[in-house]
Design a protein around this nucleic acid. Structure first.
Length: 561
DNA sequence: CTTTACGAACTT
DNA sequence: AAGTTCGTAAAG
C-alpha cells in the first residue's frame, strides 16, 4: 500500500480500482496542488491547467474552462490587493495623480484630502482624536484582549481610546465609562477636579468636545485657538521617510493635545486650580496631596474617614431610633414563628424516635411467637383461582397469592441496579439507622436511600425455616388486637417483609422531620442575618431615615401598637 | 436588542 | 509571517 502511494507522486497514471478521477486528465492524483471550480466543484491539477499555487493565492473565485464556456458570464475573480498590482500602470498613475481620489474599501484607505494624509474607513473619520491616536492604552478590555498585551485575541477590536468618535460603533467607543474616565484622567495630567465635580458631566463634556473638534476640522479653515493639525507632506515620499514623519507627527500632535487641554481647562475658569499640587484633605493637614490622591498619606485618609464616622454616625443612630422599624418587627414575628415550628418539629421527632423503639420492641416480641401449623392450611383458601395480576416492575403475570412477594423481590432487583447517592455522608447526630450511607468508590458518593429500603447495599435477612411471621394483627385496619400472625415466615404471603415496611414508614417520617428542622434552621439564620445587617455600621453610614411626614409616620406607628 | 466570538481582509 | 481590526454570525 505504502509503495503504491509513493508511486502515485511520480506516476499519477496509476489508477486505483475505485479511486475517484479528477481534472481534465481524468487521473486520481491528489498529491499535488489542485484548484476547485466554484461552479461545478470539480478539482483540477494546477499543472494541467497552468495555474500555480502562487497564482491561486490571488484568486478569489475560479471557474473551469467548461463552466466558462457554458456560462460566459462566469469570470475568474481576483483578490483586490493582487488585482491592484495587476492593474495597468496608467490607471494606477491616474489614481495617485488625483488628490480627491477615494477608494473607500471595507478597510482603511488612504484618502488625500487637501494634502492632509489621513486614514479613513467605515469606522474611522480619520480626523477625530481617537483616529489620530497611534498608541493603544493597554488598559481597556480590547487592549487586554490583544496578543501584545497577553490577551487571548478573542475580541479583536482596536483600543477603546482609538475608536472613532464619529464612525465607530457606540459600544466599541464607550462601554466602561469609568475606565475611559480614568484613562483620560491619567493622560491629561494637569487636569484636576475635586470630588464634588460631577464625573458624568465631565465625561459628557469630553465627549462633546471630541465630537465638535472632529467637525471643526472638516468645516475648513476657520481658525480657533485650538491648534489644528498641520498639513504634513507625505505624498511621493519614500517609505522610510514617511514612517519617520508619522512618528514625528504623532509626537508633535501629542504635545499639542496637551497644550490644548491645558488651555481649555484654564478657560473653564471655575476657580479650581489646575496646578499639580493640591492640599491634602486630611484634618488639619497642610501638606500637599500625593499625585492622583486627595491625601498626602494613608494616615490622613484614614483620619478623615474616622472623623466622618464620628460626625455622621451618632446622628444616624438617633434618626434610626426615632421611627419604629417595621422590618425589624416583622423579623421578630418571623423568628417567633420559626421557633414555634422548631419546637413542634422537635416534639414530633421525639415522638418518632419513641415509635422507632416501640417498633423494635414489637418486632422483638413478634419473633418469640410460635408457629401455628394449622394456620397455613387456612392460608390456602378458596381464592386460589385462575385470577392473574401483573407485576408492576417486570409486567409478568403472577399468581395473586405470591404477588406481594414477587413484586417486592422484582422491585428490589431493579432498584439494586441503580445508585442513588450524594457526595456528602449523612451527619445527623443522635439519629440511628436512617440513611444507607454506603460509600461507592467508583462514583465517590454515599448512598442516600433509607437504610431499611436499600436493596443495593443490604439484602433482606435470610429467613430460617422455623421463623414465625409475627406481624401484629389489626382490627379495622388501624386498631391493634394484640395478636400476632403466627404463620411460618416463609409461607406467609400476606405480611411479606412487614418489618421492613413498618420500619421504613417510621424512618421516612423521621427524615421528613429532620428536613423540616433543617429548613427552619436556614430560615432562622436568614432572618437573623437580615436583622443584624439592618442597622449595622455600613448600613447606617450609607442610608438614612427621613421622616417626610411626621403625621403619617405617627399614624402608622400608632396603628401598629 | 446587545454582546461575544471569529473568519478573513488588510497592515506591518 | 505575524499582528490588527472589520463585518457579521451566533449567543445571550
Amino acid at each position: 500500500m505504502d509503495s503504491e502511494m509513493s508511486d502515485m507522486d511520480l506516476t499519477p497514471a496509476v489508477d486505483g480500482e475505485n479511486a475517484p478521477l479528477y481534472c481534465i486528465c481524468r487521473k486520481p492524483d491528489i498529491n499535488c496542488f489542485m484548484i476547485g471550480c466554484d461552479k461545478c466543484n470539480e478539482w483540477f491539477h494546477g499543472h494541467c491547467i497552468n495555474v500555480t499555487e502562487k497564482m491561486a493565492k490571488a484568486i478569489r473565485e475560479w471557474y473551469c474552462q467548461q463552466c466558462q464556456d457554458m456560462d460566459p458570464s462566469l469570470e475568474i475573480r481576483y483578490r483586490k490587493k493582487n488585482r491592484e498590482k495587476e492593474v495597468e500602470p496608467e490607471r494606477a498613475e491616474k489614481r495617485s495623480s488625483t488628490p480627491e481620489f477615494k477608494m473607500d474599501r471595507r478597510r482603511g484607505s488612504k484618502v488625500s484630502v487637501s494634502s492632509v494624509n489621513v486614514k479613513r474607513s467605515a469606522r474611522m473619520c480619520g480626523e477625530c482624536e481617537p483616529c489620530t491616536r497611534t498608541e493603544d492604552c493597554g488598559q481597556c478590555d480590547f487592549c487586554k484582549d490583544m496578543k501584545k498585551f497577553g490577551g487571548p485575541n478573542r475580541i479583536r477590536q482596536k483600543c477603546r481610546l482609538r475608536q472613532c468618535v464619529v464612525r465607530a460603533r457606540k459600544m466599541l467607543r464607550v462601554r466602561d465609562e469609568e475606565f475611559s474616565l480614568r484613562e483620560r484622567k491619567d493622560n491629561i495630567m494637569h487636569r484636576r477636579y475635586s470630588d464634588d465635580y460631577d464625573e458624568m458631566e465631565l465625561y459628557e463634556h469630553y465627549k462633546d468636545r471630541d465630537a465638535s473638534w472632529g467637525s471643526e476640522d472638516e468645516d475648513g479653515p476657520v481658525y480657533i485657538p485650538v491648534p489644528r493639525k498641520k498639513a504634513i507632506k507625505v505624498k511621493h515620499v519614500k517609505r522610510r521617510d514617511k514612517k519617520f514623519d508619522k512618528k514625528k507627527e504623532s509626537r508633535r500632535h501629542k504635545q499639542k493635545q496637551k497644550h490644548r487641554d491645558r488651555s481649555r481647562h484654564s478657560e473653564r475658569g471655575d476657580g479650581r486650580d489646575g496646578r499639580d499640587h493640591r492640599q491634602c484633605l486630611g484634618p488639619n493637614c497642610i501638606d500637599a496631596a500625593r499625585p492622583s490622591s486627595k491625601y498626602c498619606s494613608e494616615d490622613c485618609g484614614m483620619k478623615l474617614a474616622a472623623n466622618r464616622i464620628y460626625e455622621i454616625l451618632p446622628q444616624r443612630i438617633q434618626q434610626w431610633q426615632q421611627s419604629p422599624c417595621i422590618a425589624e418587627e416583622q423579623g421578630k414575628k418571623q423568628l417567633e414563628r420559626i421557633r414555634r415550628e422548631q419546637q413542634a418539629a422537635r416534639l414530633r421527632l421525639a415522638e418518632m424516635e419513641r415509635r422507632f423503639h416501640e417498633l423494635e420492641g414489637i418486632i422483638a416480641k413478634a419473633k418469640q411467637q410460635v408457629v401455628l401449623q394449622d394456620e397455613d392450611v387456612n392460608e390456602t383458601d378458596s381464592e386460589d383461582t385462575d385470577l392473574q395480576i401483573f407485576c408492576v416492575s417486570c409486567s409478568h403475570p403472577i399468581n395473586p397469592k405470591v404477588a406481594l412477594r414477587h413484586m417486592e423481590r422484582c422491585y428490589a432487583k431493579y432498584e439494586s441496579q441503580t445508585s442513588f447517592g450524594s457526595i456528602f455522608p449523612t451527619r445527623i447526630e443522635g439519629a440511628t439507622r436512617l440513611f444507607c450511607d454506603v460509600y461507592n468508590l467508583q462514583s465517590k458518593t454515599y448512598c442516600k436511600r433509607l437504610q431499611v429500603l436499600c436493596p443495593e447495599h443490604s439484602r433482606d435477612p435470610k429467613v430460617l425455616p422455623d421463623e414465625v411471621c409475627g406481624c401484629p394483627l389489626l382490627r379495622d385496619v388501624f386498631e391493634p388486637t394484640g395478636e400476632y400472625c403466627r404463620v411460618s415466615k416463609r409461607k406467609c404471603n400476606k405480611h411479606y417483609c412487614w418489618e421492613k415496611l413498618r420500619r421504613a414508614e417510621v424512618d421516612l417520617e423521621r427524615v421528613r422531620v429532620w428536613y423540616k428542622l433543617d429548613e427552619l434552621f436556614e430560615q432562622e439564620r436568614n432572618v437573623r442575618t437580615a436583622m443584624t445587617n439592618r442597622a449595622g455600621l455600613l448600613a447606617l453610614m450609607l442610608h438614612q431615615t427621613i421622616q417626610h411626614d411626621p403625621l403619617t409616620t405617627d399614624l402608622r406607628s400608632n396603628k401598629d401598637r
